[in-house]
Design a binder for these strands. Structure first.
Lengths: 155, 155
DNA sequence: GCAATAAAGTATCAATTGAAACTATATTCC
DNA sequence: GGAATATAGTTTCAATTGATACTTTATTGC
């Protein structure tokens, strides 16, 4: 062991990534198994359920997903009849998305499950711990973003 | 908003995933830019630096990476002359991996950078917060794992 | 000791991902 | 109002990923 010893097990970015993957995998497999929804598809449904009439562009900014991912999930959900696309009177390039009757019904089923899954994973934390965890995620995310932006700056 | 309102922005698994990606991306791009190393490659180097003479199988269990990923990273690092593979006297199917002189030198450069990156991202948290964050990650990870294992059980 | 089975590592292939190119519509500027 | 540029969304393509099949060596049971 040198003085720059890294002790990979304790390297926090690494642990964060592993934990996040464990959580994502647990949730993704539940969505697929129970509702044949990918996580991207479910995210779109959840966002549209909160506010109807969004465009794909708005979904991209809200979910931080790639626009190709949003495009594909939108197409899949439309083909499956879970969302509807209506012309956007204000802009011919985009469409306004809303949940269909089926989509609304599905959302009614999936939303409680999503919350139940969250509860099973985070349920043993008490309120204070949850608040702190959220706060820490915020601060860590900001720092990481700043780092990326700095380094990305040309010159 | 319904009573099953999900408020995606506050859905913790989602926030965890976003934060983790921000951190991973910041670190991955730094490794690639400065040392032309993928994160998998860097992880192998870090683990081998901590203990020489491991087999790929042992690397798989320690890093939780897929064995295909480990195989590919091992081949790439060997071709680049950063690690060496010696016959395993105890088992002809596997080889013992160790850092080459070049690999050791590279590790000397990268390890401080890795720690500096971690410091830039997590540095504003104090000791108590770091300890708590680690503890929370542990507990969350265990709960998620348990959930996956339960559901994965046949029958 | 030799079949039958297991394990380490690699190769193959199909699915997922996102960058870049593309189409269609909007906006800007003269 | 028309050329030049920008933006919303889709398509294409190349890279990454991991499941599966495969090769080689170990182990097990007879």
């Amino acid at each position: 062991m040198t003085d720059t010893n890294l002790q990979l097990d304790n390297f926090l970015p690494y642990r964060l990534s592993i934990t996040s993957n464990l959580v994502s995998d647990a949730i993704a497999s539940a969505y697929v198994r129970l509702f044949a929804l990918s996580v991207s598809e479910w995210r779109l449904i959840a966002v549209i359920a909160e506010q109807n009439g969004l465009t794909q562009r708005e979904l991209v900014t809200r979910t931080l997903m790639d626009k190709v991912t949003v495009s594909r999930a939108t197409i899949a959900l439309t083909e499956r009849g879970l969302i509807e696309r209506k012309p956007n009177p204000g802009d011919g390039r985009s469409q306004l998305l809303s949940l269909s009757a089926d989509g609304t019904e599905l959302y009614g089923h999936v939303a409680p499950l999503a919350l139940a899954l969250e509860a099973q994973i985070f349920g043993e934390l008490d309120q204070k711990e949850l608040a702190l965890f959220n706060d820490l995620l915020d601060r860590i995310g900001s720092a990481a973003k700043q780092l990326t932006d700095e380094k990305g700056t040309p010159g």
